[in-house]
Design a protein around this nucleic acid. Sequence first.
DNA 1: CGATAGTTTGACACAGCTCAATAGGCGTGG
DNA 2: CCACGCCTATTGAGCTGTGTCAAACTATCG
Lengths: 242, 242
Amino acid sequence: MTVRQDVHSAGIPVLCQSCEARHRGVCGALDPEQLVGLAKTSSKQQVKPGMELIGDAETVDCYSNVLSGVVKLTKSLSDGRQQIVGLQFAPDFLGRPFKAESAINAEAATTVSLCSFPKAAIERMMKESPELEHRLFKQTLNELDEARDWMVTLGRKSASEKVASFLLMIAKNIDPAVDAAAESTSFDLPLTRADIADFLGLTIETVSRQLTRLRTDSVIRIDNNRHVTVENMSRLERRSGA
Amino acid sequence: MTVRQDVHSAGIPVLCQSCEARHRGVCGALDPEQLVGLAKTSSKQQVKPGMELIGDAETVDCYSNVLSGVVKLTKSLSDGRQQIVGLQFAPDFLGRPFKAESAINAEAATTVSLCSFPKAAIERMMKESPELEHRLFKQTLNELDEARDWMVTLGRKSASEKVASFLLMIAKNIDPAVDAAAESTSFDLPLTRADIADFLGLTIETVSRQLTRLRTDSVIRIDNNRHVTVENMSRLERRSGA
DNA sequence: CGATAGTTTGACACAGCTCAATAGGCGTGG
DNA sequence: CCACGCCTATTGAGCTGTGTCAAACTATCG
């Protein structure tokens, strides 16, 4: 994508010009002047898979935009059982407003690039600009809708339906254009089998068995453990239980 | 509770004067003038258990405050399997801002009293008063936190831990003062066994068995099927898996 | 007092878990 | 280029917790 220097990007920090968070994310709420102010204290960073971004019960002092990659939000029981309670893709906003301590863990599932700002800067800007708070509110409502969708999956679907639902969700996130009509799609799984298990409330073994079942039934193909090709979208959808 | 006509309630509609939603709910964001405006179009109503408040995929044209009782938010799969994805107590706000259609069902679990307003009135007021939107945002963040807590319960806890967690949650909601230190508490279950099963992703039978196990282990007592006395709060907590 | 809806209890089946062994992918170093 | 080791994923065998189906029990209300 070429960065055009036209009326729309006049006065916008270089950092932000081609940034997805400005187009579809929360930064879209800010005018050039505010962007400049924020860009002064913000910093881009690249994070390797497995790195912890926010620790449970840790004081959080920065918020971030996810620019690429996938972040997993997890919660754990005292004995180590873990559950993924959310996945964040670009250009999601990462952080829990109005709370000093995080109740969840955030960890890079893939290589992730982030744009981080000090907590205080965002909170000041939220007071000045109702539009920013409005955008964050809308994202939170979407996350709540997603969380509730997954509660149905966790509570009421069988293992094979869970795995099918997961693949569908990933396919739709990677390529928002795909739907049941599409013949086939293909993508890299952003999660390991262990992560998928933590996301679906299953064990690694069960996830693996269900994936091979989908493979032997030629609903999907799997290459190199990570690359999935959905051969037949509508059959996958029928297996998702929705 | 007597309604005092003092400086704090000057100009406030009679309807709102002793209303919990004005004290702890979203109406606290409104000034007397706005309350008067809203009260003109609002109406209190009483709803019997089992009544549907919002239908899935139905156009919603009113929002409500829950004034008493418990509302269950549910989602269903096409074959009838059902999952409760949220419970709302007074003074929660009921409704999904910025969306014409609801993706979930809302149903009275107990007798519920509501204060309802036209959707348009709230949305107009939200534009005028950032403080109102701010309160709704905060409630949504809390609901998201709760939803994620339950995802751990749904995905990773055993049936007995689920039932214990459910009893703890209800106890804390009925009497916010109780904690592990408290010797015992007692309350009426706002849900039937079938509802509890739908909430925990279990069957009626499993819920029943786990409740009798808690009873025979004298962690709780049950009278008339609905009234529960927690004999030993900390033992219940230990069984909840947290 | 019977009717109805909700709840409990029992016997059995099976989906998904556990433990254990094998296979495959990938980077390192010879 | 192959050999090795590490990590991740797959496959198998057996077990167990929870679901299923059916029957008995209880509360509530006309």
